[in-house]
Nucleic acid binder design. Sequence first.
DNA 1: GTCTATATTTGGATAGAC
DNA 2: GTCTATCCAAATATAGAC
Lengths: 197, 197
Amino acid sequence: MSTGWDRRRELTRADILHAAWTLCRDRGLAGLSMRDLAVEVGLRAPSLYSYFASKSEIYDAMFADGQRALLEMTAARAEPPSGREGLRSTTAAFVSFCVAEPVRYQLLFQRPIPGFVPSETSYGLALEFYRTYTADMERIGVTDQRLLDLWSALVTGLTDQQVSNDPGGDRWISLLDEAVDMFCGHARLLGEPVTTT
Amino acid sequence: MSTGWDRRRELTRADILHAAWTLCRDRGLAGLSMRDLAVEVGLRAPSLYSYFASKSEIYDAMFADGQRALLEMTAARAEPPSGREGLRSTTAAFVSFCVAEPVRYQLLFQRPIPGFVPSETSYGLALEFYRTYTADMERIGVTDQRLLDLWSALVTGLTDQQVSNDPGGDRWISLLDEAVDMFCGHARLLGEPVTTT
DNA sequence: GTCTATATTTGGATAGAC
DNA sequence: GTCTATCCAAATATAGAC
């Protein structure tokens, strides 16, 4: 019966992962080093290799961690209503998730680590989110690929500008309702405008 | 009369810069190393320091180089007409510029080099472009800050998605006209739709 | 599993001869 | 200005004792 052992091991792994997120928040994703990580978690660098085979594996675990958080956030929400309000609330949830942890956002949606490629299983989580996302969008009433692409560009653009140029502020997230109305007006989605112009 | 000398020096500097761009196109911005750069240009690493005081100065020169190219591209264009068509042509020129050289786009508009901050004079070039850009937008008819921000998010979103997820293709740039119409419909800018829906 | 010690690599930068 | 030789620092990863 090695469950106690495995459990302890899992706990330490989680501890390392937690410390990795903390370090990355401070010094950026690329600033993570095995030495510092070991110090943060109260070990020496070589000991980390008992838990992760390489630094890349740590990034991969962080990637999976972030994707799981995103999936959980999505799953915790009620099914979005169709039309404008569904789009608004779904997108607001997504953008909040991204803006809340800029480093996580960078790891999941940009490619800031040269040479890092998510493992097959981690990438599977990303695909799973993408499926639920498109399913939501379909229910909301956006099915055309061009419209999906246009909307994804708008959402990532807002998120990116917010994270890059006004971290901690709301200069771009505050435009979300207006973006929804602009898009829905164009796509002729049902519902009344959310913003009052 | 040291013009011949200075000229030769300028030529070598330009050669180094050219090689730097080439290397970055291959291995990414962060992948640039003084050793490889020296080899590429036919020198040894220490010799580079006769032309640039540090690696950071090389990045800075590249940044200035890119900003100048952007300014030249802008200056070469006729004054944009007002309204929808002005927005369309101005934005198309900008996005083309970005997509043509993804590495240059990253250096100018993202922060991919940890610790790199443009020098005062280089940043001045960026400010100069920003001024001409906002002046253009004003002439086009977009003056409200919120609308400017919304449009900037949309443009950078399209550019980013194109560069990141469909390099060499046109999946997102092909949506530009539609984006213009969507935005102008929302902002109630003059002119007829460009796309036929 | 954890440690000390170390190998290995890489890359920026400098000293000093020519 | 360019070179050889070298320094220095950082960082991943491994070997082997305990």
